[in-house]
């Protein structure tokens, strides 16, 4: 048995290396990737009702790719992400719908957040975060990239960098 020890050491080393290489659980792919995005319709937050109507959501026949961004006013990374999303909304508003879903939050706090960052992309209110669970979310912020046929292309957990956001938009417009 003892003469096999180099093989055993190599096996254990290999197992250790494989364990270290495994992706972070936060980067686990969503089971929704490649599947139709769950459709929903939720009440829009007050500042957007005049332009978009009382409700908004993901549904068939939108004819536009959607970047579904799940956020909350108490979430710190959302504070750096919000101005970035706003800038891209200004740039791509005709080609891509950036739709915010405010979860696990109070409506008053959400409105304060929107005002503070001057967000013009629409956000719906999902106080209990049920749509988040429908999409299998892990936390905020989280972004789902949905193509114009309503298929989920990617899920991004955590804050988006400018390069990542640009990458997703290019992917979805291809």
């Amino acid at each position: 048995m003892l003469r096999f020890w180099p093989i055993l050491v190599l096996l254990l080393g290999g197992l250790f290396y494989w364990g270290m290489q495994r992706p972070n659980p936060n980067e686990l792919k969503s089971v929704l990737v490649g599947k139709p995005a769950p459709s929903f319709s939720l009440p829009l937050l007050e500042p957007y009702r005049a332009q978009y109507g009382p409700e908004m959501g993901v549904r068939a026949g939108l004819g536009k790719p959607v970047l579904l961004n799940i956020w909350a006013s108490w979430c710190i990374p959302c504070r750096t992400e919000a101005p970035l999303l706003e800038r891209f909304h200004q740039q791509y508003r005709d080609q891509v719908l950036i739709l915010g879903v405010n979860v696990q939050d109070s409506e008053a706090e959400a409105l304060k957040f929107i005002q503070q960052y001057g967000l013009t992309f629409p956000s719906v209110y999902d106080g209990r975060g049920r749509i988040g669970i429908e999409y299998g979310y892990y936390g905020v912020p989280e972004t789902f990239v949905i193509d114009r046929n309503g298929t989920v292309l990617a899920r991004h957990a955590g804050e988006l960098s400018e390069a990542q956001l640009r990458g997703y938009i290019e992917q979805v417009l291809r």
């Binding site: 975060g129 049920r130 979310y137 936390g139």
Partner: peptide, 10 residues
């Protein structure tokens, strides 16, 4: 956590 409370509700 809010999400766990919502899961129990579901």
């Amino acid at each position: 956590a809010g999400i766990a409370v919502e899961m129990r509700r579901i």
